[in-house]
Design a binder for these strands. Structure first.
Lengths: 197, 197
DNA sequence: GTGTACATACCAACCAGTATGTATGTCCTC
DNA sequence: GAGGACATACATACTGGTTGGTATGTACAC
């Protein structure tokens, strides 16, 4: 049974890579099978369709990535604005040239799949909502602690911060330029500073 | 020869629709042919490959759309911040539910194609650059006229405005919600106001 | 008679998905 | 504890459909 779990996990990780590289629709099951050494029978034993495999990649791989890289670090103590800038800058430092070119895995799937598959759309929406709420929460906490302007609406600001973040990554992805990402992030930092009390 | 031009134009417009709906890779040439009533021989007479057809859609259809909906309106006289907010609000009013769901045609192609096809990437980059420069120009003019803060860097601010705009549309696309687009745009307007002198 | 603007028929490659077979483990019965 | 019954976890081979692309033919204009 441990072997079956390992097979399933290998499929999920290879599927994530293949989808990240080519998008979901252009992702080839045969390529995933070649990369893992798993056979088609095994794949369809674990996932009843390509669609279900894609759903599982969001629910298990991408969801974990979001947790690890955003939701958890954002909860550290400190001034909300400083914490957010710190988390964004850390992510920016760790990013590779390849990752810049390939963009945000969640946003890639959102732009490709949300108009054509409600199952994808809902799953992505769920993750975006968690992401947004994590920002909203620390803004609200900051308002109570007197470190964030009380005049702003935390939910609306969180939405805009999330959108700008994805926008910056999208622009930098097309420009294939870490420098452009950092220039763009400076604009976001300027906005974040304007929320400071 | 007028007939040939009409055939070519019909192909470009149908290709634009098909690509807008499904993305470039999933766009079907056969569907484009069905919609236009043109035959495959005619298509390959005008475009030597699917790739070249895609390039032409960017260079001719999407480029014109950008001109008509952004570059031209943004040049109207007035306070730069007011002009930009006006143009964005007008676009927001004219948008349909279907357009919300399908997002920005240029950003869709950027996210899908930039990592896997340099020809697409360069063409999209060219349009993004024009877009950004149009914003940069009115900010710079505003600085000279004393209506925009002299402390900001117009090029960096323009980059962030463009990124936020695309980010807002991307988030609203996945949420399939005009309301979310407007809430997100409010955040952008807040940032724009902070540039005012 | 030569180039333009198509039309028709076809092709190999690839796609997701399936039908069938099998090795292995587990559980229950006697 | 031997043995049949059943489920799990695959492996192999195949299918029908679709894809972008091409080879060949033709009508017409200059």
């Amino acid at each position: 049974m441990a072997d079956a779990d390992k097979t399933r996990q290998a499929l999920l990780e290879a599927a994530y890579e293949e989808i990240y590289r080519n998008g979901f629709q252009a992702a080839s099951l045969n390529t995933i099978l070649e990369r893992t050494g798993v056979t088609k029978g095994a794949l369809y034993h674990h996932f009843s369709s390509k669609q279900k495999l894609g759903y599982a990649v969001i629910d298990e791989i991408i969801s974990q990535k979001l947790d690890r890289e955003w939701l958890t670090p954002i909860q550290q103590p400190g001034h909300p604005i400083d914490v957010m800038i710190g988390v964004i800058q850390l992510a920016g430092q760790q990013i590779t040239g390849q990752q810049i070119d390939q963009g945000c895995p969640l946003n890639n799937l959102a732009q490709e799949m949300s108009p054509i598959d409600p199952g994808f759309r809902q799953r992505i929406d769920h993750l975006y909502r968690k992401w947004q709420e994590s920002i909203e929460k620390i803004l609200r906490d900051g308002q109570q602690a007197g470190t964030v302007k009380p005049s702003i609406n935390p939910a609306d600001a969180a939405l805009f911060i999330l959108a700008s973040l994805e926008g910056c990554m999208g622009i930098a992805k097309n420009a294939q330029s870490i420098d452009e990402l950092k220039r763009c992030a400076q604009g976001l930092f300027g906005y974040l500073e304007s929320l400071r009390c």
